[in-house]
């Protein structure tokens, strides 16, 4: 998110407060003075996580603070699900398995832990998938179930969703 605000004391704090008010989580604040710009305004980039559906409320709150939102780049991968895959993971091309999720564009494998037993034994892996929305996560899981069936892998899913 790229913000533009008046360069006066307290303005940055005023811009950050609405983020926590809507339950957002600030990951990074990048603040660069651009010499060619006039010195009345300040441009700030903020990387943050927002709960779903809070975007418009945040923009409204920022406007009330006199902060102008220049740009919002969205990459929302807020839904997380950790599964375990068991079987001949290497023989069935693990990187293809991961790629089937990553190539969707709406979900990705963000973490992978794996055991490496004897060559012919079945191996086990723990895979964390992140997706943009609940619906996308459901689609990603459908793909993963298909892949598991095709490759005769046992897919162990969580009983409950974690957001």
């Amino acid at each position: 998110m790229k913000l533009e605000m008046r360069d006066s004391p307290g303005q940055l704090v005023a811009a950050l407060k609405p983020i926590s008010d809507v339950g957002g989580n600030i990951i990074a604040v990048i603040h660069q003075r651009e010499p060619e710009r006039d010195h009345d305004t300040l441009s700030v980039q903020i990387v943050l996580e927002l709960p779903e559906g809070k975007r418009d409320k945040l923009i409204k709150l920022l406007k009330e603070q006199g902060v102008h939102v220049q740009r919002i780049g969205e990459k929302r991968l807020l839904f997380k699900r950790t599964v375990i895959l068991i079987g001949h993971l290497m023989h069935t091309d693990l990187s293809d398995t991961v790629d089937r999720i990553d190539s969707t564009g709406f979900a990705e494998v963000s973490d992978l832990a794996m055991s490496m037993p004897a060559v012919n034994d079945r191996s086990s892996s723990r895979i964390t998938i992140r997706a943009v929305s609940k619906k996308d996560m459901a689609s990603a899981m459908t793909i993963l179930r298909q892949v598991a069936r095709q490759k005769s892998l046992l897919l162990v899913e969580p009983l409950e969703d974690t957001a």
Binding site: I86, A113, S115, R122, S124, L154, V156
Partner: peptide
């Protein structure tokens, strides 16, 4: 199920 899966 494998012991590794439980450990993971």
């Amino acid at each position: 199920l494998t012991a590794d899966a439980l450990r993971l």
